[in-house]
Design a protein around this nucleic acid. Structure first.
Lengths: 269, 269
DNA sequence: AACCATGTTGCGCATAACGGGACATATTAT
DNA sequence: ATAATATGTCCCGTTATGCGCAACATGGTT
């Protein structure tokens, strides 16, 4: 993470790239950041970072917390996020359902979409968390907050989203080598294809310890009014709680909830 | 709005300012925008805008909708917004309550905070919408979506937030001239001070047609666990529905709901 | 008081961002 | 078909612009 902005990639506005890097340096663990701190982290001069942050503050994308010292992300980001097309309705509709599921299961529930973007001339797909519901009692692992990106081939939600992609599109966005995160990660494309077919057939995906050892998950597709799959709902939890014999019924349950959300989105099976 | 970036304000990174201007050019009415379009609007060359937008896209703050053409706001903004410190809890807690109020009253309900920022060497306060709940049946006026900024001295929520500000702070952030938006707008500071005292006493604010003719509103404060007022809830609607005789009980009702939210935020009266 | 942090401000240089215009592509009209 | 008008991207030469430097503030520790 040292200097993601080292690469002088052609045709990119340097200062804007740096400004974005500054914005993205904020996280749950680091909700406030200072100039010097970031200067070191990004390998830029203090003055440079200072000017960039001042500009971002003027623009409302940053603000300073108590009385001028460290910076926080600015309120205007909420306004911008509110205008991110499409997903707002989905989030509104899905929220109550998924919160309920989180309460019932006492596991963390996610609402995710597939984000395909151009990386180095290649179209790559990533799974992005739109929303996460964590049961209040279980603050154990706070993994995967909103905005987190994950690989699609080894996550339950990712498999669902891949499964319902048009075949040629799927071909494009799947990398040649499927990275192995654990010994259980499916790394062969042909094996994955078989699994995706099964996902389509079953209407849900079950993944055991493919992204992280000891982490299991199930997921189900959410359709919009045109019928295409626009998102997936997933339940994730430690393997000792989400046992192999429980997973199928959990998946089935989530499938029903997802279907209800789809219905509310205007989908008529 | 033609060119807010005309002013070569000292110590501001030009390209970042422009990038922010691009981001902020998106809105409900204009969820997708093109290079040429913006180039004209901002008075910049096509190539300049193209490069800026490409950079923003690479950074995930923009994305292109169908198959490379117009731009939309990018998903990563959701992730950034999720890290905007502090407000997330409040939104989560308040949401179900305020939605319910919106359903009951069949009026639009807002959750707002005060944003004080440095503008031209002067600290200015603005009221910002964190969240808006519009009853589904009444899509009439879709004013004031999330992120909208409004003056504090002539809005119900603004008066609440001003009322509970430390006096010296209030002095600072109140402009010398209170702009009149309608004939009913309070423009004298001493009159406003009297009203704010009444707000503190009553625990709620009632505003009739001060921001816009025919628009009435009530608001109540929301406290955090330390006791300070961090936000306000408001109900706004047309004067013919929110009649003068109804307003007080509406305000009282909202006050109770706000108190409940405060309680959930850890406030013990 | 001297020291170590922090973040901001002026300055001169060189790079990086700009605007111009050519190019590629798509949609519409003739 | 061909032309005409959009669109957005790419290359290139110029200079304004953003950079690093170092000095300057300011605040907390020893």
């Amino acid at each position: 993470m040292a200097s993601a902005l080292a690469e002088r990639s052609s045709s990119g506005v340097q200062s804007v790239e740096r400004a974005i890097a500054i914005l993205k340096s904020f996280s749950i663990d680091k909700p406030e950041r200072g100039v010097g701190e970031l200067s070191r982290e990004l390998g830029l001069h203090k003055s440079t970072v200072s000017r960039l942050m001042t500009t971002l503050e003027r623009g409302g994308l940053l603000s300073r917390s108590p009385e001028s010292q460290r910076y926080r992300l600015g309120i205007d980001l909420l306004g911008l996020a509110a205008h991110v097309a499409g997903y707002m309705d989905l989030r509104e509709v899905a929220r109550p359902y998924l919160r309920r599921v989180a309460d019932e299961c006492q596991e963390s529930v996610n609402l995710v979409v597939l984000d395909v973007s151009e990386r180095g001339g290649q179209r790559r797909a990533q799974v992005v968390n739109l929303e996460q519901f964590v049961p209040p009692t279980r603050q154990v692992k706070n993994i995967g907050r909103v905005g987190r990106r994950m690989p699609p081939h080894c996550t339950a939600a990712g498999k669902v989203l891949l499964a319902y992609l048009p075949p040629e599109e799927r071909e494009q966005v799947l990398p040649d080598v499927l990275e192995a995160f654990t010994p259980h990660t499916v790394t062969r494309r042909d094996h994955l294809q078989v699994e995706l077919a099964r996902v389509r057939q079953q209407g849900s995906a079950i993944v055991q310890e493919e992204l992280e050892e000891g982490l299991n998950a199930v997921a189900a597709p959410i359709h919009d009014h045109t019928g295409s799959v626009i998102a997936a709902a997933s339940i994730a939890g430690p393997a000792y709680r989400l046992t192999p014999q429980e997973l199928p019924q959990l998946a089935a349950h989530l499938g029903k909830v997802a279907a209800r959300i789809s219905h509310d989105m205007g989908f008529t099976a």
